[in-house]
Design a protein around this nucleic acid. Structure first.
Lengths: 253, 253
DNA sequence: CCATCTTTGTGCACGCGTTCACAAAGACAT
DNA sequence: ATGTCTTTGTGAACGCGTGCACAAAGATGG
């Protein structure tokens, strides 16, 4: 996972595989684009290309939803859009709160993709009293003290954490205690939550490090012939020149 | 990734499994925290807990790097920090460009996690001439026209795309043509790149939709007492009481 | 009504990742 | 030195996800 993964091992549900669920939004996006161009039907081959996946995989994914295609023709675009939306729960309205209105939180609040599908920013919450009342993306920021009340009054079940790492767990605990059962975490920390609560994390730094790994591998391949030779005999440990004094823990904000 | 995936199937390299690579940054973060507290050694059990994974998984992950532990004792924190950093390529400096300095781009530019490990923001690039010269996070924004020159002059191999979806592919093409071989994409689009270029995507909207799916499933479970009973016989599909208005236009067959 | 052609839906095999469980390795005390 | 105790490193089994390849379904044309 670009994305990280914090799932319970496996749900007993006779439902859709997790890997498939993760791709449905991709299909939905491609289908929506087709719908806007008034394309009536699409083949698995075409749609797969648009979504950047394998056509066999796409067909198998759709087979978990039911037999919604017509052999010799393809899939009805409008119908599929509806079916996938329904499966993902996007036919209902999901009020969402964003906690931590720093640079990132503001960017999220302004993000158009939120409102476009089922998601509605119910409130923006920040711990800084100076922020209170200040409008961001047209929504006034509220103080953390109001958190529990906001969650309950609006029936919020999805929370987005964009606070510094140090505050994340505490915010998380309060969100969960107030009734939130799904959390999208942007803070670079491992969140601990009770069973029944889903956490997904988005971690900039991790994604970059993964890219760096591959980048290094590419560079190593073309230049050096053999570097895999020297293991780690010399324990030159702490003497490394790494970015020593780097205090992590601080997020945008 | 959060996680998107656009990898080539498998690298022939005798190297580390992709799943393991994705966890190394997690271990590194936990280890860095321990290092700052001057903890000398740590057991697989403790470290696994801190990183939010299974201890067996962690040991297997480390076994791909070599035998860096001491039985009966655990792992030397400083030593592991160095080994993982080296494996991830973080002992060298990675110049990075961010393209698209809107809300999100600015948030990324201000993100502390960038500089803290090996990554250095070499330039901020935006298509809006009005932005040119304006400093963001202490770095003056440069115009898109300069893109190729910036990439080459700084030897940039990692690019971050934070533009609107419509511009992403075009920017991507230019980055790749100029020599970038790793891309972190925040735009909600599928990017097409030549072989040898790595793309990771971070997609807000997708993460939320996945959460919504699970959220819906939870809600469905608690209301309908016995759902485990009825398999899929009565696929209450289109006939359900969903948001009435948007009934699919066409029912296939 | 029959033949042909397109495209879906899926059985099957394969490979990767996860987890269990345990032998081997080393620390430490006696 | 010997025994005990802790913790690693890994062999093996299992389950999930992926991709191939093809039969079945339906459209289309004669």
């Amino acid at each position: 996972m670009a994305t990280g993964r914090t799932h319970r091992p496996a749900t007993r549900s006779r439902g859709i595989p997790e890997a498939t669920v993760a791709r449905l939004p991709l299909y939905l996006r491609a289908l929506t684009a087709l719908s806007e161009r008034s394309v009536p039907t699409v083949s698995s081959e075409e749609l797969a290309a648009a979504a950047g996946v394998n056509s066999a995989k796409l067909r198998k994914d759709f087979s978990y939803l039911g037999s919604y295609g017509t052999r010799g023709v393809g899939y009805d675009v409008e119908y599929l859009v509806y079916q996938i939306s329904r499966e993902l729960g996007l036919t209902q309205d999901w009020p969402v709160v964003i906690v931590g209105i720093g640079n990132l939180g503001a960017a999220l609040a302004n993000y158009g993709g939120f409102a476009s599908r089922g998601f509605r920013v119910a409130a923006l919450i920040d711990a800084d009293p100076a922020m209170a009342g200040k409008p961001v993306a047209g929504i006034p920021v509220q103080h953390t003290d109001e958190l529990e009340k906001i969650i309950k009054d609006n029936g919020v079940s999805i929370g987005v954490i964009a606070t510094p790492a140090g505050a994340a767990q505490q915010v998380c605990d309060r969100l969960v205690a107030a009734g939130v059962t799904s959390i999208l975490n942007f803070a670079p920390t491992v969140l601990t939550v009770p069973d029944g609560v889903d956490v997904r994390k988005v971690d900039l730094s991790i994604e970059l490090q993964i890219l760096a790994f591959h980048e290094q591998r590419k560079a190593g391949e073309e230049t050096a012939a053999g570097d895999g030779a020297l293991p780690a005999a010399t324990r030159d440990t702490s003497t490394d020149q790494g970015p020593d004094g780097d205090v992590p823990a601080v997020m945008p904000a």
